[in-house]
């Protein structure tokens, strides 16, 4: 078992707030088109009109969890197919995101309740699913199964990673197998879908959770809009593939504003009998 300590408050501050992408002095909200100051959108990077700006994975962890302890960060991504330009792309993605891969995995707590966490990083090749992405999430579900922990996962992904060919596709099955085993053991998995969640991630672990939450306005879908337009030659309905559309179609449980998310997650953990650490589980 990994030792679990709360970090001092100032470190938590640093972990979370410093990672929020600092917008220029002014930023225009793509929804209400107002010009906003940085302070207008902090701490949750949301506009008062309801628009949610994208968040870096570590900023998310800082906002919603305490005492994050990273796991499986040493997994190395390889260019298995020797795909043209992949090496450079990986290097750029690492620089752009400050991460080694498109997902961060680890253990953290909400209100003193221990959870296994994965958070996808859209700045890393738009969160695409490489073999290490799949490996880290699979390992996290296996770790959570062995330690009887719930999993909370934030998805943000353009889908499979073309540069890894079929090996990327196979991650969908691999992760699904681990989710199923975790589920068979009666353990809780909550997914929070964020903008964008599409393709192979939608067609696997994003849609396999016991409870599927989403941020307002998030793009969620299987096929890309352009592909659908080309295939069907039809105009897409307004709000197509937005979180609100999926809620109406019955594929997500609840849309939660970022400011309410920690509270919602805490309530869900309590309702599933997840005790605070150090307490006897009376489940």
């Amino acid at each position: 078992m990994i030792s679990f300590r709360m970090k001092p408050e100032n470190e938590l501050e640093k972990e979370g707030r410093d990672n929020i992408p600092s917008p220029e002095d002014e930023i225009v909200c793509p929804n209400c088109h107002r010009t906003l100051k940085k302070n207008d959108i902090l701490p949750f990077m949301t506009c008062s009109c309801g628009h949610h700006f994208r968040l870096k994975a570590r900023a998310r962890i800082g906002l919603f969890f305490n005492g994050f302890s990273e796991l499986f960060e040493d997994e190395k991504t390889r260019d298995i197919l020797s795909f043209p330009g992949y090496g450079d792309k990986l290097e750029k993605a690492r620089k752009a995101s400050g991460e080694n891969e498109s997902v961060i995995t680890g253990i953290a707590s909400i209100d003193g309740r221990k959870v296994a966490v994965f958070v996808m990083e859209s700045l890393f090749m738009m969160g695409s699913m490489g073999h290490v992405t799949g490996e880290k999430i699979t390992k996290l579900f296996e770790y959570a199964l062995a330690n009887r922990l719930p999993v909370i996962g934030f998805t943000a992904s353009g889908g499979a990673r073309m540069q890894e060919g079929l090996i990327s596709l196979m991650q969908m099955a691999k992760v699904s197998g681990a989710v199923k085993r975790h589920s068979n053991a009666g353990l809780l998995y909550i997914a929070v879908l964020t903008d964008p969640t599409t393709g192979g991630v939608t067609a696997s672990f994003a849609m396999e959770a016991d409870i599927i939450l989403s941020e307002p306005g998030a793009l969620i879908g299987f096929a890309g809009k352009r592909v659908i337009e080309q295939t069907t030659k039809k105009e897409l309905p307004k709000g197509f593939q937005k979180a609100e559309f999926l809620l109406k179609c019955g594929f997500i449980d609840k849309i939660v504003h970022r400011k309410d998310l920690e509270y919602t997650l805490r309530q869900l953990l309590i309702l599933h009998g997840i005790e605070k650490e150090g307490k006897e589980n009376i489940g």
């Binding site: 969908m172 699904s176 939608t202 067609a203 696997s204 672990f205 994003a206 849609m207 396999e208 879908g221 299987f222 096929a223 890309g224 592909v227 659908i228 295939t231 069907t232 039809k234 897409l236 309905p237 197509f240 593939q241 179609c249 019955g250 594929f251």
Partner: peptide
């Protein structure tokens, strides 16, 4: 890749 397929959860069905 159609509108109805998305409305009825193509991703969920495959998952």
């Amino acid at each position: 890749c159609g509108i109805e397929a998305e409305e009825r959860g193509e991703g969920e069905a495959i998952a």
